[in-house]
Design a protein around this nucleic acid. Sequence first.
DNA 1: AAATAAAAATGAACTGGTTTAGGAAATAAG
DNA 2: CTTATTTCCTAAACCAGTTCATTTTTATTT
Lengths: 195, 195
Amino acid sequence: MGDVLPVIHYIERYVDLSDEEKNHLASFLKITKVKKRQFIVQPGFVCSHKSYVVKGAFRGYLVDKEGREHTLSFAIEDWWISDYSSLIYQEPATLFVEALEDSVLIQITYEDEQKFLADIPKLEKFERIITQRSLAFQQKRLLSNFTKTAEERYDEFMSKYAAIAKRVPQYALASYLGFSTEYLSKIRNGKTSKS
Amino acid sequence: MGDVLPVIHYIERYVDLSDEEKNHLASFLKITKVKKRQFIVQPGFVCSHKSYVVKGAFRGYLVDKEGREHTLSFAIEDWWISDYSSLIYQEPATLFVEALEDSVLIQITYEDEQKFLADIPKLEKFERIITQRSLAFQQKRLLSNFTKTAEERYDEFMSKYAAIAKRVPQYALASYLGFSTEYLSKIRNGKTSKS
DNA sequence: AAATAAAAATGAACTGGTTTAGGAAATAAG
DNA sequence: CTTATTTCCTAAACCAGTTCATTTTTATTT
């Protein structure tokens, strides 16, 4: 059980668990190791797990019909990642989720999560709260895309998530912020009209 | 109690409720009538309610520092609306939520919702599920903004939400889709480069 | 350490969508 | 039914960010 403790601790930030509940929960959790450039989710396949990052970095992205990549999310230590739509509706994924470094995950399958939500109802509260926070985050991101220029979005990201920016390739960051990698290059080297 | 039944029925799509639970729940719900152009949420004030639309139409939007409006959501009959961030964190709102028509709402306060979530734990499941769906929806919208042109987003919206498009002013629709009202005018009248 | 592949930089030409400024239609109000 | 207000349309100039094509730098593999 020792190796799945990070997830138990994560959940305990939101709800209290008895020792019995913790053990029950731990029995559903599995450690997985993945190598850099390995995919844990791929378009066409139903996303079967939710993954907590113990060590490493990931990126979830879509490839559009013109072949362009658009990054929906990053995850480093202590974050969760999956193709959320595919997971909750149990339908084929549209995203790739790829390891950007050799990584270690703690995973739980969709079916097991449904089981323990039924067995331990207070975990519903945990799920509700973290989903609400993700939603609030996504709304801010959407508004930021509407209201801010490319450069402002870049500055905002750097000030909030410098730790992530350092670890991900530049083309991945550009595609997260919603502009081309060439333009990110210009921003970084001050070749844009103003400033 | 009759007048708050729509919300009870809405919740029953997701979880079963005993008569006692329904009555308990109903005691927290209040009917509110608002006139066209009236605000139910305003920046600077904490959003105290979650609102279910019985009749009418609403729009939630942000005004940026240049004075431009950006619509985050619409709501017509059988939808919910609020400033979600403000509600869950109980911090000052950043959005306006405005009635686009004379409308009727069923509202519940943040405190009362916390109470009944504690009293009736299975409502946590209801909250969890609808929040998950909102999140999946928002992710699709974000990706749609990244991957599609203004015209494609317009066509997509029209085919999915023609009912809403008919009821909201054009500037509100443009600001939801993320482009200027002049450009929407061009799209509608086929004055854009292709097509 | 050499060879190869992947990522980042650069610059010129271009384009999807904005801005500005106006006029025409439609809604709402007296 | 008349006036005021809000909403919608048009058109030309403009710009933030893209595209394309090539080079340099940095990782990865042998």
